[in-house]
């Protein structure tokens, strides 16, 4: 039942107020020997067709775990989702059966990974791997599927696709491998594409090409793109809105322009100030002091308070809610006004 409703709804296109994908108060924890690690603590974000959401944060901030929860590829156990909803076109994915979930994966919501070499199966040719998507999910025969694979490789701009279709992943350069990964993930025309640090393993010129390719594919197919990254430079160009994560929570949530103009959370501000700039050549680069919190032993109150230059006494005791600033903007800081206004230091 849920499967059929999921299948038919996109054809109608009538979404109403419901976004394409909505994560609602998501909690993910891992049961480990040392205790329960709360990797994601009440994350909410939404994505509309054709929109790019950048999820920003340090390693361990929960951005990848959120993505894996959306994909349903967390190993459970040790992971568990005690609370929250992931609504895709109004259907809560967490309530679907395994079988219905598999139908969504790859076909409706797809994902690309950081390191394309390890994300591609080393024992099969890339053509085989791309065409597998069509053979398994679309029931195509080998020849048609292979032809589609070549077509896709052309679409992601792999030169001489026809000759290279029978090559193995290790015979491609990093950028080309990521293109193949992208080809596989868009093979079935997904409505949402999650890119988990797609350019981290690549050098800068190739990064730009991959981002451009993603932006272009998105324009062509109007899919929603969730871009997980810790690279603010990558984000500025392509994202429509940004969610900044810290210690498993969203600390700031805003259209991309607003964040770059004036961050409303001290953590975002710290991130932006730690980007090297040419006009500061020779000066010491700003770094956020301290370390990200241990998820087993979270600070009381605001998780960022031990590192925060704006800290007041109540930050240690009261966890800040996501304050609405304006329209689509939120900040989880008691003193967002001060942060917006300027520098306390």
């Amino acid at each position: 039942m849920s499967k059929t409703s999921l299948r038919t709804s996109p054809a109608e296109g009538g979404l109403g107020d419901e976004p394409l994908l909505a994560v609602e108060d998501l909690h993910v924890e891992f049961v480990t020997r040392a205790g329960i690690v709360r990797a994601v603590n009440g994350v909410s974000y939404s994505l509309n067709p054709g929109e790019t959401l950048a999820v920003l944060g340090e390693s361990g901030s929960g951005k990848s775990v959120t993505a894996q929860a959306i994909m349903g590829i967390l190993d459970m156990p040790p992971a568990r989702i005690p609370k929250g909803e992931i609504r895709f076109r109004g259907t809560d994915l967490l309530k679907l059966s395994d079988e219905a979930r598999t139908q969504v994966r790859g076909q409706r919501i797809s994902m690309i990974f950081q390191d394309a070499l390890s994300a591609l199966n080393p024992v099969f040719t890339v053509g085989w791997q791309i065409s597998e998507m069509f053979r398994v999910h679309r029931g195509m025969n080998k020849r048609d599927a292979m032809a589609k694979a070549v077509e896709l490789m052309d679409r992601v701009r792999i030169p001489a696709a026809k000759q290279r279709v029978n090559d193995y992943p290790h015979q491609f350069s990093g950028g080309m491998r990521q293109r193949i990964m992208i080809a596989m993930s868009i093979a079935l025309d997904p409505e949402v594409l999650i890119a988990d640090e797609p350019t981290t393993a690549l050098d800068v010129t190739v990064q730009a090409q991959i981002m451009e390719l993603l932006a272009e594919l998105q324009r062509e197919s109007n899919m929603g793109l969730i871009l997980i990254t810790h690279d603010l430079g990558v984000v500025a160009d392509v994202a429509d809105k940004i969610a900044v994560m810290y210690a498993g929570r969203i600390v700031e949530n805003a259209p991309v322009y607003d964040i770059y103009r004036a961050p409303a959370h001290p953590y975002t501000k710290g991130l932006l100030e730690s980007i090297p700039r040419v006009d500061q050549k020779g000066q010491e680069l700003y770094a956020i002091k301290g370390l990200p919190p241990n998820l087993l032993d979270m600070p009381t109150g605001c998780a960022f308070h031990p590192r925060c230059p704006y800290r007041q006494d109540n930050c240690v005791t009261d966890a800040p809610p996501l304050y609405g600033i304006s329209g689509a903007r939120n900040s989880a800081c008691h003193y967002w006004r001060e942060v917006l206004d300027g520098d306390p230091r």
Binding site: M71, I73, T102, Q103, V104, R105, G106, Q107, S110, M111, F113, D115, S118, A119, L120, N121, P122, V123, F124, E132, M133, V136, H137, M181, M184, S185, L188
Partner: peptide, 26 residues
């Protein structure tokens, strides 16, 4: 534990497909 198995899952491969199509050949 390698990424391509997780990737295969993320791209919609079933349990048996992962077992025979991805793990066995490797």
């Amino acid at each position: 534990s390698q990424d391509f198995v997780i990737a295969a899952r993320a791209l919609g491969a079933s349990q048996s497909r992962i077992m025979f199509g991805h793990l066995l050949p490797n």
